[in-house]
Amino acid sequence: MSQLLQQIVNGLSLGSIYALIALGYTMVYGILKLINFAHSEVFMVGAYAGYFAATWLGIESMEAAGQAFPLYLAVGVLLVAMASSAALGMAIERLAYRPVRNAPRLTPLITAIGVSLLLQNLGLLVFGPNPRRYPPVLKEVTYELGGVVLTNVKVTIFVVTLLLMVGLQLLVHRTWTGKAMRAVSVNLDAAKLMGIDTNRTIAATFGIGSALAAAGGILFGLDQITINPLMGVLTGLKAFVAAVLGGIGNVPGAMLGGLLIGLSEQLVAGYVSPDYRDAITFLVLIAILIFRPEGLLGVVRQEKV
């Protein structure tokens, strides 16, 4: 029993990180119908930005002296990472995607694959291929409840993800920017005719999605102990699966999809076989796309001829 609970706890925290990353996929897909493959690398860069910010603030000497990293600095690290990823995401949109926005659907897709490859290889070149230990931006405390181990990091992951989700939901539904985003996602040209600055709205979408991925990157580093330049590849793919599962373009759907993927991975690895963990994740994806392409919470949109 405690084993099952433990797997569920682990699955929920992993799933929350998938959910944070999934938001970026879901928002961009909703607005541009583009699978932004480079998003997983934006997530990686966010984690590294947090790493360098914390190191620059002297976390290593503090740790050596046994001091905890002050909370206000931790928040600063988070903001720096979010800002750098947002800048990167917007730059990618401006330099690589905007020139091909009106090209046939597959051109942007391949461009996205290219940007993803470029950032992976640049990451290997600049950050070096060795994995790095993530600095304890948040000092880890473990609690044990009836044989189930819980850490403050896992709780934080869950809470931060939930807060950011709610914030995003409010932003999309209660602000002018959100309204513009929804308008652009329904019809870009019509939105432009209505006086919406579509370029700015799209840039904002990329910026917000990328900032959320950076938050995911830091939480990921804290929870998974190490980061490396290729960390985004598999995680990003799974987050994308989560976005599709929940219904692409749908914010609560991304959360639901992320949690379900995280849980199913842990349970498959714990009770079936870790060998087939990824295979089963992909099977879920295929089954969803074939039988319910709009996802669990998505709305069917009839394609007009």
Binding site: I110, T111, I113, G114, L117, L118, N121, L122
Partner: peptide, 8 residues
Amino acid sequence: VLYALLLI
């Protein structure tokens, strides 16, 4: 790196 850049 160049290979990816070329593709883009």
